[in-house]
């Protein structure tokens, strides 16, 4: 499958993200001849362990992430970041987790916006919002390169595209920039050949970064 890089908006120190930035970023996609090509949405849900005795120690992680991706509507991805595990499952795993009553879904974040077609690339720009609450928590973008599935072989062209994108954004003098975190997929047991599990891992990385930004 085509590979993707997922980038997030890193506000300058002392500034916060706002919907005006999202509008301007979307305009940038159009200004480099991107044609609007429908909407996209991904969702991350935090699952927290439930314990019979909150004071007793338990051998389990603090949380795990459940991720649904538009590219695989019948699949669900579970990630335990501390142990670098990504599990690919059918969507029904969500109902199984509910029945087990060992972990409870606490909060969901939606990543949603528009996708743009630019030749061999697809760019998706969207907002990060807590479900049932429209306030903006962040901005993310996906850059998908359609012809290649190898992370290594596509690295140069992806870097070049991101450079052009950053240059376009910088002309707007916005208070921040897009950031790409190079994820170590090998730690998760994933190969160079791109899959939706790679996408899920990138979302988990971006999520951690967004939380760190909010906290700081």
């Amino acid at each position: 499958m085509p590979l993707k890089w997922i980038l997030h908006w890193q506000p300058n120190a002392g500034t916060t993200v706002n919907s005006q930035i999202l509008t301007e970023v979307s305009q940038c996609a159009e200004s480099i001849n991107g044609t609007k090509d429908g909407r996209w949405k991904s969702t991350i849900t935090y699952y927290k362990p439930m314990s019979r005795d909150p004071n007793a120690p338990g051998e389990y992680p603090r949380d795990f992430l459940g991720i649904s991706l538009q590219e695989q509507p019948n699949k669900y991805y579970c990630i335990i970041r501390g142990q670098k595990i990504v599990l690919e499952a059918d969507s029904s795993i969500q109902m199984i987790m509910e029945k087990l009553q060992s972990y409870k879904s606490r909060v969901s974040l939606n990543f949603e916006g528009f996708q743009y077609k630019l030749g061999d690339f697809k760019v998706r720009v969207g907002k990060v919002v807590v479900s049932h609450n429209e306030s903006l928590r962040g901005i993310v973008m996906e850059v998908e390169y359609l012809p290649i599935s190898s992370l290594e072989k596509s690295r140069q062209i992806m870097e070049e595209f991101v450079d052009i994108w950053q240059e376009t954004i910088s002309r707007k003098s916005l208070p921040g920039h897009f950031m790409h975190i190079d994820t170590n997929f090998t730690e998760y047991g994933l190969s160079d050949h791109y899959s939706s599990q790679h996408t899920a891992v990138q979302y988990a990385t971006v999520m951690a970064q967004l939380l760190a930004t909010v906290r700081s």
Binding site: G58, I80, L87, K99
Partner: peptide
Amino acid sequence: RTMLESKVSKNALRFFYALGY
């Protein structure tokens, strides 16, 4: 009876061990 199934990747055992099973 209720019965739910989900196909999963081959690391399912490691995943459930990590969850505390």
